[in-house]
Design a protein around this nucleic acid. Structure first.
Lengths: 102, 102
DNA sequence: ACTTTAATTCGGTAATTGCCTAAATAGCGT
DNA sequence: ACGCTATTTAGGCAATTACCGAATTAAAGT
């Protein structure tokens, strides 16, 4: 929980999570969405990995990152509960995917 | 939202919010719950104020801090919604207050 | 084995953070 | 105005953070 909140503190890392919520993505593809250098993004991804907010799997020369939504949910839930804020999984199915070129 | 997540990153500040959820409290009383120096706590409170997570009202020589629960709720809601996580206000009424000496 | 592509690790820098003690500010009672 | 209590501001220090370019590691194709 501590590393999760620490990870969420940075806006770049929150954007990465949002990006990975739409679909899984390679490190390079993620880096391409930002104006930061790749080593910088790699560092952010390492922090997200340490917080278990994302998982990484090598696929050829690429490393594919995906969001661990349940970890994020659990962290938000645990925190929100302390304040009597209820938190519930959304009805199944994500936001509609965009078709065509992004 | 940015300053809120930045504020939530520190465990001391999260504990302060939890403390203020049970009841409002003076700066000194808050400081008494921690082993940190008062100026350090004062700094944390300033950050929470800047994020609008707490409000401060002078009452005599004391300054009474109270939690802005709705701001916390809104921040968590806004963030959670992006991930399709629903978040709802709890049924009215806080955690039972402790009677007697604390 | 060499090259290409993809990502990380290394080494270093500027800015921020969290902490402290000492000093200043603010209100209240005398 | 003086002293007491409560809190913040100021000044400084060590640790962490976010960033970069250069070098390294890893996998796959030639």
């Amino acid at each position: 929980m501590e590393p999760v909140f620490r990870a969420l503190a940075d806006p770049t890392r929150r954007r990465i999570l949002q990006l990975l919520h739409t679909r899984q993505m390679s490190a390079g593809e993620i880096a391409g969405r930002f104006t930061l250098a790749k080593p910088t993004l790699s560092g952010h991804l390492a922090i997200l990995r340490a917080a278990d907010l994302v998982s990484a799997d090598r696929q050829g020369t690429s490393i594919i990152y995906r969001l661990n939504l349940s970890v994020l949910q659990q962290a938000l839930l645990g925190f929100a509960q302390v304040f009597g804020i209820g938190l519930a999984k959304a009805p199944l199915g994500r936001r509609r995917l965009r078709t065509g070129a992004g």
